[in-house]
Design a protein around this nucleic acid. Structure first.
Length: 267
DNA sequence: ATGGCTACGCTTCGTAGA
């Protein structure tokens, strides 16, 4: 079974490419982030034509997450239980469409779009860290309830865990950029450490360093990218992984998303 | 020269991405 995750940066602008990609790769499960669509405007038909069931969660032109599957799509859950809303000062906090879960052929898949911190001092940074802390707490509960859980937390984590996961760590440091700060990395690493012990099964199985290249400044042609899209698997699921791939080719050509798909194959 | 892109919408700029 193949499970892919892909920040498509607008499902409507990318509809033809996504349909072609599904026909070409024949993944069984595709988790999507940044659909930039509401449930009303989401193009369900491109998945149905290709033989996939799909569940989407979108409430505005921002964010939006979905899971498409051709091996079953059960117990769909929109937002994880502890997921915090974003509160603007003086306004009612708003829940954002950043997480959708579904069980596909026995694997509990969460499609996650971790908030962009925007800036080190920006209120969105504490939102990002709170959001990850809440996800960690719920994940801990799921694994306590079932230590053998087949669980996949996949998506755009908006964190580059290692210095080598950005093209020039000095550039990031000098410009006080997000995605590489100690608190963000600690929040990410907490998923890989005791007691959760989730596994990044992709890193050891692919030579491609990056999953994202900015549209601006010719970043892709200069191969100045970032590794920020991950599939973190429960220990029991990680044992079944036989292959992994970052589909760099999909970043090429006109009309590409700035992120590329990340795929695992499990036995 | 310190830029360069892409997408969205009650669109023709402001917001967001990272």
């Amino acid at each position: 079974m193949k499970i892919a995750t892909w920040n498509v940066n607008s499902i409507r602008a990318r509809a033809d490419r996504i349909e072609d990609w599904l026909d070409k790769t024949e993944v069984d499960v595709l988790a999507l982030q940044e659909t930039k669509a509401t449930d009303e405007t989401f193009p369900y038909e491109i998945f149905e034509y290709s033989g996939y069931e799909v569940a989407h969660f979108g409430i505005s032109q921002w964010n939006g997450v979905a899971i498409a599957s051709r091996v079953g799509l059960e117990d769909v859950e929109r937002t994880f239980p502890s997921q915090p809303p974003f509160g603007k000062p003086g306004e009612e906090p708003v829940q954002e469409a950043r997480a959708i879960g579904a069980t596909c052929n026995g694997v509990r898949v969460w499609s996650l779009y971790v908030p962009n911190g925007r800036g080190i001092e920006d209120p969105h940074m504490s939102y990002k860290l709170d959001w990850l802390s809440a996800l960690h707490k719920d994940t801990s509960g799921w694994l306590k309830a079932d230590p053998g859980a087949q669980l996949a937390l996949v998506g755009d984590w908006n964190i580059a865990p290692l210095d080598q996961d950005v093209w020039d760590i000095d550039f990031f440091r000098e410009n006080q950029m997000t995605h590489v700060t100690a608190p963000e990395r600690a929040a990410f690493n907490a998923f890989l450490e005791e007691p959760l012990n989730l596994v990044d099964a992709v890193r050891p199985l692919t030579d491609e360093p990056y999953t994202y290249w900015d549209y601006t400044k010719g970043r892709f042609s200069k191969n100045e990218g970032m590794r920020i899209d991950f599939q973190l698997l429960s220990p029991a699921l990680a044992q079944r992984v036989v292959a992994a791939q970052i589909d760099r080719e999909e970043r090429e050509g006109a009309g590409a998303s700035d992120h590329t798909p990340v795929i695992i194959e499990i036995a």
